[in-house]
Design a protein around this nucleic acid. Sequence first.
DNA 1: CGTATCGCTGAACAGATTGCTCATTCAGAA
DNA 2: TTCTGAATGAGCAATCTGTTCAGCGATACG
Lengths: 156, 156
Amino acid sequence: MAIDHLDGRIILLLAREPRIGVLEMSRRLGVARGTAQARLDRLQSNGVIRGFGPQVDPAALGYPVTAFATLQIRQGQGPDVRAHLATVPEVLELHTTTGTGDMLCRLVARSNADLQRVIDRVVGFDGIVRASTAIVMENPVPLRIIPLVEQAAEET
Amino acid sequence: MAIDHLDGRIILLLAREPRIGVLEMSRRLGVARGTAQARLDRLQSNGVIRGFGPQVDPAALGYPVTAFATLQIRQGQGPDVRAHLATVPEVLELHTTTGTGDMLCRLVARSNADLQRVIDRVVGFDGIVRASTAIVMENPVPLRIIPLVEQAAEET
DNA sequence: CGTATCGCTGAACAGATTGCTCATTCAGAA
DNA sequence: TTCTGAATGAGCAATCTGTTCAGCGATACG
């Protein structure tokens, strides 16, 4: 589970050139192929690397609007609300949280007008008491993991 | 930019078995290799598929705590705050939003105690007026895109 | 001080895949 | 009718993968 420097370089390399093969990877890293192979296998079975699924851009799919909704749930309705939200394609992720709201979810929509439809569908469910939505205008830091990987690799 | 049914199946297939090759892909889809190749190339140059970077699990890296922080920024300090947050590895993403706060960011930390350190580092910056944090307890719907891809592929 | 274990190395081999090109067919647009 | 874009099926050289092997240095342990 601890990430050493070589592991860090492997992840970095894969992040930059994902379609690279193990052989080419070993060359870049200056290690034997077996080593690169073994490290990569270990990172994957560790769960550090979950997979290499395609990163799809919702905007390119026709959903350029992103929003975050904070939801307040009626006592005991949590499981039902979760199940409900899981059926809405525009709900990209859902968290239960401490603090002001009970849940936080990320939404996408085709337009600001369409966002209204999505929100109606999301909150149009009995267990949801209140919802407050924040529309994303800019995304100065897109979802990233590299800096964290680098930090984790340093602390060896 | 419009996604047809075949494109949808390509993305679905890649999501399930990311390390699959183009040849095997064409076999599964029942099309010629060149077709699969061309479609995949198009999806990538379209920007629909951004890439195949490794999906790294922060928890496996030693950062099991996730939180969302809503920030209020002093007028005109936006750019400085953005730059500041970009330098913090534990800030995984940052959005500017409408609504209550001015910015929303996703944080990770090694523990609840460590989260305090991270928050101090995040808000210990002049331009930030106020911050309210919601700690994630559960993640009923992890970040996903498949349902949306399926919906987009249907609407052909 | 021996000894076992572990990770890394370098090499080898057959089988499969990739990148690329070509000629052909088909369907919709002009 | 003619043109253009997309898909097909085929072929080839170069490369990579999966796998196995033996050797080597470092570390842990009795």
